[in-house]
């Protein structure tokens, strides 16, 4: 019985935590493709939305998604001021391929390296691709698991909703 009370108390606490969650980007430092450190919790885009997209060089749907966004990215930026960070979860086996690959694709967005899955774990990502939309105040407002062709339209719609606010 005491045991049960203890559990109730614990879950009460947990719930109060869960329900008040103001999900923000975690305090985790990743490297960009040149080795420069970037702290996720300090990312700002002058009050404009940020997209965090998890991908890997060996992941087919991830590359299809980033390719689709690449084609329209310039107009997205013009229209909404959005900035996209493509977070590669490639481990040491493939991490050195990320820069030559991304440059050859002529991607205009930022690429970050999550070589040991620290950010992936902290943000509860269990498969790639996975997309987060962060508002101008650094609050996570939308998430999407996986990619089907056309999903970029839904993302753009959500970004537009944000930039109107």
């Amino acid at each position: 019985m005491i045991m049960m009370k203890y559990h109730f108390l614990l879950s009460f606490l947990l719930i109060s935590f869960l329900s008040i969650a103001q999900d923000k980007l975690p305090n985790i430092v990743l490297k960009d493709m040149n080795g420069k450190s970037v702290n996720l919790s300090q990312l700002t885009n002058n009050g404009k939305p940020i997209v965090i997209n998890f991908w890997a060089t060996w992941c087919g749907p991830c590359k299809r998604e980033l390719e689709a966004i690449h084609e329209v990215y310039e107009s997205w930026v013009e229209e909404t001021g959005v900035t996209l960070y493509a977070v590669s979860i490639d481990d040491q086996r493939n991490v050195d391929k990320v820069k030559p690959y991304a440059n050859a694709q002529q991607w205009a967005f930022e690429v970050l390296l999550d070589t040991n899955g620290d950010l992936k774990r902290a943000m509860g990502v269990n498969n790639v691709p996975f997309t987060f939309l962060v508002d101008g105040q650094g609050k996570i407002v939308w998430k999407h698991n996986n990619y089907n062709p056309g999903d970029e339209e839904e993302l753009l719609h959500k970004i537009k909703e944000l930039s109107k606010q």
Binding site: I15, S16, I20, A21, Q22, D23, G124
Partner: peptide, 16 residues
Amino acid sequence: QFSFAQFENILGGSVM
């Protein structure tokens, strides 16, 4: 989940 939303401003952490 719903009944404690009013504490939002007091505790304001992040759960992911």
